[in-house]
Design a protein around this nucleic acid. Structure first.
Lengths: 228, 228
DNA sequence: GAGCTATATAACTAACTAGATAATTATTCA
DNA sequence: TGAATAATTATCTAGTTAGTTATATAGCTC
């Protein structure tokens, strides 16, 4: 696991005796990345308002001034974190190559991908939750993010059309709403697992429960797309 | 619409000329309710950390001291808001009488209820999002909330069994996961509508879009529960 | 190796914020 | 009616927080 601090060794060349190439004491990129990593943790666990710039700097083993030097303000750092996490998700999605699969297999693969991505990147769920509370004002402002639009819904539309032509997928499905439902079934399970676990006194985050949930999500979506 | 301030008229008996019964200048319950209403808005739009006690007091047209007088602390006020909103939802759910309906009708009614409740009480969505970010620590602490457990999932279980006996509902459905999925399909649509609208450049919160989404949610769940 | 500049540090500050103090006034009830 | 109590107000305070200032130095260029 890459922690924020692990990116920022306290002393130059502290690793591998003395003949190893010395890590420079000053390294703009390393500091930037350490700040981003620490900020992602801080913002995703406490939200924009609850996050503390001093904590971020401390966790990144950087001076607080560096945060302002590289990112300008707390809010701009938050936006940088959001852009990076959201961009990474879109980037990963763009390499799925769903059109290479049989339509039904593609649908299944997409549901499973959504579930697995949520499981492996729970920070983005929290970041999105916070951003939605603020009416997505930062996302709206972001050029970088408004440029990386559509993609997966378009692919899904193509997949649905292909499946429909083959008689394997029912007609009249709205690709966007199907995409939202696929996301919803996984996202909600992870985003609300704390309150759900309390309300239903069932430890929903165990490995066994997750496996169950993953299969359930696939089941729900496959039932929906299959013609009757 | 009941705003926080409307509960708290500036002057006694300001309404309906002079022969109307004078509203008392001091009214503990009115002040308490005004604070709760203002706090619900503040906490649901800004989260626990982002909310400001001064803003809550101002919006409630109450002195800040009253907030501490009645609720003790910012965090206890937050818990009171959470308990009230969550309790109201559970209370409403408990009056659904789903077992009086035919199994399939009951399922449909529950999906529609979930959707309509989300639409009409979007504050609770934001409150839950914030509470989940904090690991549900307040919900866990709350006696009142831990006492109002289970209910709807039990009812759903009964409905599923009845439907299964009639051959109208497929066997082997996990009532809890079905309940989570019902919630997820509606909740996610409302909780993430800001970011979804930005990402997909489609104004998802219009009345027409909501109608579409509601039908889609019903469709997805009914497809799932129906035997093949 | 002198000088330059990007990177880094420590210490400071002005504004904000949750909560406390203490005095005041409306209402109740004997 | 008048003392007791409940509700309310204005003002203060100690601690926190985002952002700044002033200064230092590592590492590069020539």
């Amino acid at each position: 696991m890459v922690t924020a601090a692990s990116l920022k060794p306290k002393k130059a060349g502290a690793s591998a005796k003395s003949e190893a190439p010395l890590e420079p004491i000053r390294d703009a990129e390393r500091t930037r990345q350490a700040l981003l990593a620490a900020a992602e943790i801080e913002f995703s666990t406490k939200g924009l308002a609850g996050a503390r710039v001093d904590v971020i700097a401390e966790q990144a083993v950087a001076n607080k001034r560096m945060l302002y030097y590289y990112f300008g303000s707390k809010e701009d750092l938050y936006l940088a974190v959001l852009e990076r996490a959201y961009g990474a998700m879109r980037e990963t999605e763009s390499h799925l190559n769903l059109t290479d699969l049989e339509p039904l297999q593609a649908i299944k693969a997409l549901v499973e991908f959504k579930f697995d991505y949520c499981e492996q990147h729970q920070q983005i769920i929290a970041l999105l939750a916070g951003e939605n509370m603020l009416g997505a004002k930062h996302l709206k402002r972001s050029k970088r993010l408004r440029d990386m639009n559509q993609s997966l819904v378009d692919v899904l539309h193509t997949v649905l059309a292909a499946g429909e032509a083959k008689g394997e997928i029912r007609s009249g499905i709205d690709a966007l709403h199907l995409y939202i439902s696929m996301s919803a079934l996984s996202y909600f399970y992870f985003s609300n697992s704390s309150t759900l676990s309390v309300a239903f006194e069932r430890q929903l985050s165990s490995a066994a429960e997750r496996k169950l949930r993953r299969a359930h999500c696939v089941d729900v979506i496959m039932s929906y797309v299959t013609p009757r």
